[in-house]
Amino acid sequence: MDKVRIGSIGLGRLGAQHAENIATKIPNAELVALCDMDTAKLKETAERLHVSKTFTDYDEMIACDDIDAVVIVSPSGLHTEQIEKALASGKHVFSEKPLGTTVEQCRKAEKAVEKYSDKVFMLGFMRRFDDSYRYAKAKVDAGEIGNPILFRAYSQDPEKFIAGSIAFAAHSGGAFLDMAVHDIDLARWFVKSEPESVYAIGGCYAHPEFGKYNDGDNVSCLMKFQNGAMGFLLAGRTAPHGYNIETEIIGTKGTLRIGSVPQKNLVEILDSYGVRKECSENFLERFEKSYVEEVKEFVDCILNNRKPDVTVYDGSRVLEIANACKRSFETGELVKI
């Protein structure tokens, strides 16, 4: 096999970006099919990316013999069922996070991956493929900051996009599941341990609309890990300055900070406002390269018959932790995992 033939489902913001990446930026991949319920968007995207096969029915797409692998970028509640079906049809599977929206769904996904162990399955935790996070991880693994004792992370969406967040709130699963999962995954990755207890607080400080979904526009969580390390997460939707992803790992011998000053690039603007740097607009801009690199890894695993480091069990564990954070936020109580 010289190229992996891929069918992709979902043409929302991220789905459209994945489709374009597969079609134009991944040499050993070929985008041969697209699936979406929006026929106008499906037609436009297929014509622009020169994709000959289009489907509005997922079952029809995965039945196609011309497809080796499926990339799933559909609504979160559909992921588990679509993972199962694709694996059963003999396809390799890359799925965006989350693995599922319930622990029960995650267990079904685990069983499917175990049953079809000859196929490659990979979950989209793209921050692991960001150059800065990879660089920091190598330093932690080399012992350059000693033993990690605190992991701190801020994930903040811009206030200017709040209307979209409110519209999606009914289906998002809440800020911990929708936003903080990436930070939870990074915390486990850097600290090399699992949380044993979480305590979450937050509220609707600017947008009461989130309250009817037992969610907040800004939420936070304190974690204690099994190895004694501490974790602190903030997931917010009201950043006035732009998309802000900030991470700090404090060790016994040093500290690493990634994105402590959120910025689009290294340009400084000197004007009537003073000296300033612009921020990224959204996750697609900040992690543009990471989204390419993670699918490259998926394709390389297929071509070289190996398994990726990001597994189905990472997806399950992160969901369990995110759900524990959500329970703590809703009850105001410490939750032991």
Score class of each variant (00 low, 15 high):
2 D>W: 05
6 I>Q: 10
7 G>R: 07
7 G>F: 05
9 I>A: 13
10 G>Q: 00
15 G>R: 01
20 E>N: 09
21 N>S: 09
22 I>H: 00
23 A>E: 02
25 K>G: 05
26 I>F: 08
30 E>I: 04
34 L>W: 01
45 T>W: 01
47 E>Y: 02
51 V>G: 00
53 K>Q: 06
54 T>Y: 01
58 Y>S: 05
60 E>T: 08
61 M>D: 13
61 M>L: 10
62 I>S: 08
63 A>L: 10
64 C>R: 01
70 V>K: 01
71 V>M: 12
71 V>S: 13
74 S>M: 07
75 P>L: 13
76 S>A: 15
76 S>R: 11
78 L>Q: 15
78 L>V: 15
79 H>N: 07
81 E>P: 07
82 Q>N: 14
84 E>P: 14
85 K>W: 02
88 A>T: 10
105 Q>C: 01
110 E>R: 15
111 K>M: 15
112 A>W: 06
117 S>P: 04
118 D>S: 11
120 V>P: 01
121 F>T: 03
121 F>I: 04
127 R>G: 00
129 F>N: 00
130 D>Y: 06
131 D>P: 09
137 K>P: 01
138 A>D: 14
139 K>F: 08
141 D>P: 11
142 A>K: 14
145 I>L: 02
146 G>E: 03
150 L>H: 11
156 Q>R: 14
157 D>Y: 13
159 E>G: 06
159 E>S: 12
159 E>Y: 10
160 K>G: 02
161 F>K: 10
165 S>F: 10
169 A>K: 03
171 H>V: 11
173 G>D: 10
174 G>E: 02
175 A>Y: 08
181 V>D: 04
181 V>I: 10
182 H>I: 02
183 D>Y: 09
186 L>Y: 02
186 L>R: 01
188 R>N: 12
189 W>Q: 09
195 P>M: 03
197 S>E: 15
198 V>C: 08
200 A>D: 11
201 I>L: 11
203 G>A: 03
204 C>A: 09
207 H>F: 15
209 E>T: 09
211 G>L: 11
211 G>D: 13
213 Y>M: 05
214 N>D: 08
216 G>Q: 00
225 F>R: 02
226 Q>W: 00
227 N>Y: 07
228 G>L: 07
231 G>Y: 06
231 G>A: 09
237 R>Q: 12
241 H>K: 14
244 N>H: 13
245 I>F: 14
250 I>V: 14
251 G>K: 10
258 I>A: 15
259 G>N: 12
261 V>R: 09
263 Q>I: 07
271 D>R: 10
272 S>A: 15
274 G>N: 04
275 V>F: 06
277 K>M: 05
279 C>Y: 13
282 N>F: 04
285 E>W: 03
285 E>N: 08
287 F>A: 01
287 F>I: 02
289 K>V: 12
290 S>K: 03
292 V>G: 01
296 K>S: 11
297 E>L: 11
298 F>R: 05
301 C>R: 03
302 I>L: 12
306 R>V: 10
308 P>E: 07
309 D>W: 11
309 D>R: 15
315 G>E: 05
317 R>H: 13
320 E>W: 07
325 C>F: 03
327 R>N: 03
331 T>K: 04
331 T>G: 05
335 V>T: 03
336 K>Y: 09
337 I>S: 05
337 I>G: 07
